[in-house]
Design a protein around this nucleic acid. Structure first.
Lengths: 125, 125
DNA sequence: CGCCTGTCTCGACGTCTGTCGAATCAGAGA
DNA sequence: TCTCTGATTCGACAGACGTCGAGACAGGCG
């Protein structure tokens, strides 16, 4: 990938422990925002959001590109491009098995993002 | 936006009750995805993500534009533009009081998005 | 009333993004 | 080996996006 550990703190969104407190609790530092925004941007397209949900909600835990593509009025390359975007955002993982390629969600990252957006139901302590 | 609101089911993200089940539970319909993607896209920019967190985490529950703007190396119009994007995504609310304009977060929508991204901590039943 | 400060709107500019068709790569099978 | 199918990469193009400067609007204060 493009960035190395050089100056960025390399926020690990794949970790199982929360990387950052909720958005509404303390302001997000610029560097953290840069990383997190990439994930949100990836979800900021209707096609990718649908792809993400189709993959994440697949019964077997994974979805074949051959099942994903016909669900849209888009060409194969376009779907492939969106999947690449999701992949690069760390939201999904791809694995080739024979002729087909299967995608599966990375729950840890979804949890990170959900945690970031979480708000206390009522007032805090 | 591609489609006019007329035919859209107008998913109410401001409601206090969840508009949709978690992403990982059932696939998101196209129309729903179109609406939700707008919110994620709004959060998909580092500046807006920071603005959002600064507003949401403000002690008084609201933040003045005059406090927000100097936190970035950007011009007033640019910040204003980003705030407008957040406003149009329904993520924040603006109110003018005298000379200053105050923004406050809409927790209900944050909750909707968090719920959408939520994942069962371990395996499901 | 006139001016000053704070915020937004407008128009413009360069860049990024979503989409496509054509070409390429990866395996499976005859 | 040759071919066929599935998936990705490449190159191109229109439209969207982030940013700015200039100007307009809103309200407080001499």
């Amino acid at each position: 990938m493009s960035k190395q550990a050089g100056s960025l703190p390399v926020i690990d969104l794949t970790a199982d422990t929360p990387c950052c407190p909720p958005l509404a609790q303390s302001p997000v530092p610029a560097q953290t925002a840069a990383v997190l925004a990439l994930a949100f941007k990836a979800l900021g397209d209707p096609v990718r959001l649908q792809l993400m949900s189709m993959i994440a909600s697949a019964k077997s835990g994974e979805a074949c590109v051959c099942d994903l593509t016909p669900a849209f009025d888009l060409t194969g390359p376009t779907i492939s491009h969106h999947l690449k975007t999701l992949r690069e955002a760390g939201l999904v993982d791809a694995e080739r098995r024979g002729t087909w390629v299967y995608y599966r969600a990375r729950p840890a990252i979804l949890r990170q993002l959900a945690g970031l957006l979480s708000v206390e139901p009522a007032a805090v302590a």
